[in-house]
Design a protein around this nucleic acid. Structure first.
Length: 623
DNA sequence: AGCACGCCGACT
DNA sequence: GTCGGCGTGCTC
């Protein structure tokens, strides 16, 4: 009976997104196994192509003319059955192809690395003591799917999230199972590594990060496939191999870096939720402030929350003004004078750029709806709320000249820089990011997400643009602001004061208590009433041109009338946005894939390497 | 993606 | 009568 291999290719092409059958020659039958890379003749030219072995069967194929595998090109499996199942399931959910996800799951091959791997010694870690336990570890015994809020100010006492993660992963290791830790960006990766290395766990840890050299990634991939260890990395590590995976830890799922920017636009949270199910692993999402998706998962009893207690700073809320009130000013003054550090978080242009009058420094507002005005990417004055573009009327003080509040030039930050010449002023932002500071009389002005840590923690944290961040005209402005504030607050020392500028009503009340969970839950409740994500999901299909877009609308006419989805109004004329329920997700993804595949074949605008339609099953930016 | 097949217009 | 344009479709 001939042995037949099922082969897949790492290709985004939907036409190639299936298994191809090849005969296994006798000389290779003993070597080959699931997940091996092989060379096969493919296509009319019979050229060699690299494929992955995704199944072996000795059932005689119904096809007559099977070609044979030419050669094997890996020394061990580079893809587990679980990883393949994950790629399938993510592709189905995201309206993508299994093939394009295989290229995320399988690194480039280096022959030199295979030699090194083959001759490497087996590293064994001597665990001198029984590993330490923690509240999180104990909680996981009874609640395998958990949302964890670590101590808000735990960084200084050593009970911050990095050490919580390392302890949990080490506990899993000592029970003979691997773990997988996924972090939003390199700053968090560095903090996790710091905690990992301080316990001397380098030898059992495998990093899966695009910043590493290709050969390093390949080596770690081989170790992770064959050894129990602690695997970690940024979002693409969600697909990394992990032998006998027992625990998945995800930090700050609300951070936008967890969303893959190319098709099929998956999110670490959703990939890992599926992975935890497939591999029967324990699953922890942790953050200082939950995402609304986390609140939903708790509400439907998929996650059980665990909130660590601990000291909190003082909280005050001041009036919205471009000058600080006297009390806040005095707090900052005292901190600087006594050699302590102050953090000022200011919004970036992308968060809430607006225009100030050069004379009276009032924020210029729209004459129609009184929302703030900004300069849009095409250079026009445009209202942020009603989107009308108007000639800018004179300010109430009579002057017409304006200046934009841009990165690093928040009025409050400028005022502080002038008022405290004795302070060392430092700026940190996405492009020019500070990470760790020694402390002293520092005035650190930072954009959200770029805040450096300071030795001993900040004495004052000023959330200068709180009101403006929340007011940004985006669905997720509130929850994302809360996430950014919580992360900034977590850098404070226990007796510090946090000042939120311009908050009112229930949000003011919540922030006086640092009740980030309660504030996001309120946001979620509002969205349930409005039937907006994450109560529903929103997909978008963007066409390269109007004609293809019109064809799509015609093709989907019966779907749009069926009531299974609702079409949403969006700015881009070539984008179709659809609102749908979680239970309809798989079916809709399948329908959109099939429809766009069909239309792509006859599209006139088809260019090599370019997609005529881009499907995003969870477009977080479309509204 | 490649690559070949195939069915219409311009050329020795 | 043949050469070649790239639209359509397949690759185990």
């Amino acid at each position: 009976m001939p042995l037949v291999a099922k082969i897949r290719f790492s290709s985004p092409l939907p036409q190639l997104d299936k298994e191809f059958d090849y005969l296994v020659p006798n000389r290779l039958a003993a070597v080959l196994d699931f997940g091996f890379l092989v060379q096969v003749p493919f296509g009319l030219g019979g050229k060699e192509k690299t494929g992955v072995l995704c199944g072996l069967t000795d059932v005689s194929s119904e096809r007559e003319k099977l070609l044979s595998i030419t050669s094997v090109s890996s020394i061990t499996s580079v893809l587990s059955r679980e990883q393949l199942a994950l790629c399938h399931s993510v592709a189905a959910r995201q309206a993508g192809t299994t093939g394009e996800l295989l290229s995320t799951a399988i690194p480039k091959r280096y022959t030199r690395i295979e030699k090194e791997f083959r001759s490497s010694d087996s590293f064994s870690l001597e665990l001198s003591d029984k590993p330490a336990t923690s509240t999180l570890i104990e909680h996981l015994q009874t609640h395998p799917r958990t949302y964890f809020m670590p101590e808000l100010l735990g960084n200084l006492s050593g009970s911050g999230w990095p050490s919580e993660f390392v302890l949990a992963a080490l506990h899993e290791f000592s029970a003979g199972r691997s773990s997988l830790v996924v972090l939003p960006d390199f700053a968090e990766l560095a903090r996790f590594e710091e905690a990992l290395f301080s316990l001397g766990l380098q030898g059992i840890s495998y990093r899966h990060a695009s910043s590493d050299t290709g050969s390093q990634r390949h080596l770690n991939h081989l170790y992770a496939s064959t050894k129990i260890g602690i695997n970690y990395g940024l979002r693409s590590a969600s697909f990394a191999p992990a032998k006998d995976l027992g625990l998945i830890l995800l930090w700050d799922d609300g951070d936008e870096s967890h969303i893959e920017q190319s098709a099929p636009y998956w999110h670490s949270r959703e990939v890992l939720l599926q992975r935890a199910e497939l591999e029967k692993a324990k699953f922890v999402i942790a953050s200082h402030a939950p995402s609304t998706e986390v609140v939903r998962l708790i509400e439907i009893d998929h996650l059980v929350p665990l909130k660590a207690s601990g000291p909190k700073p003082q909280s005050t809320v001041t009036e919205l003004n471009d000058r600080l009130d006297a009390t806040s000013f005095a707090l900052i003054s005292n901190a600087i004078k006594s050699g302590n550090s102050v953090l000022v978080q200011i919004a970036t242009a992308g968060w809430a750029s607006s225009l100030l009058c050069v004379s009276c420094r009032e924020i210029r507002v729209c004459s129609v709806c009184s929302s703030s005005i900004w300069i849009d990417p095409s250079g026009l004055f445009r209202c942020r709320s009603c989107k009308t573009n108007t000639a800018l009327p004179p300010c109430s003080c009579g002057k017409t000249a304006t200046r934009p509040t841009v990165l690093g030039s928040s009025a409050i930050a400028q005022q502080l820089e002038r008022s405290f010449p004795e302070a060392t002023v430092l700026h940190s932002n996405g492009e020019n990011r500070l990470t760790n500071l020694a402390g002293g009389s520092l005035l650190v002005v930072s954009t959200p997400g770029a805040e450096p840590r300071v030795e001993g923690g900040y004495s004052v944290v000023l959330i200068a643009d709180a009101a403006r961040m929340v007011g940004a005209p985006r669905l997720r402005a509130l929850e994302q602001s809360l996430g950014k504030w919580a992360n900034a607050v977590s850098l404070a020392r226990p007796n510090a004061t946090v000042i939120f500028v311009g908050l009112r009503d229930s949000l003011e009340a919540k922030m006086l208590e640092f009740d980030f969970y309660g504030a996001v839950k309120d946001d979620f409740t509002d969205r349930v009433e409005l039937a907006l994500p994450p109560q529903t999901r929103i997909a978008s299909v963007t066409s390269t041109n109007t004609e293809d877009h019109q064809n799509l609308i015609m093709e989907l006419a019966s779907l749009l009338e069926s009531g299974k989805t609702r079409e949403l109004k969006v700015d881009n004329p070539n984008t179709l946005a659809l609102d749908y329920s979680y239970s309809y997700g798989l079916e809709l993804a399948e329908l959109l894939s099939a429809t766009t595949l069909k239309l792509t074949k006859t599209s006139k605008a088809k260019k090599p390497g370019e997609r005529v339609y881009r499907i995003n099953m969870d477009d977080s930016k479309v509204i």
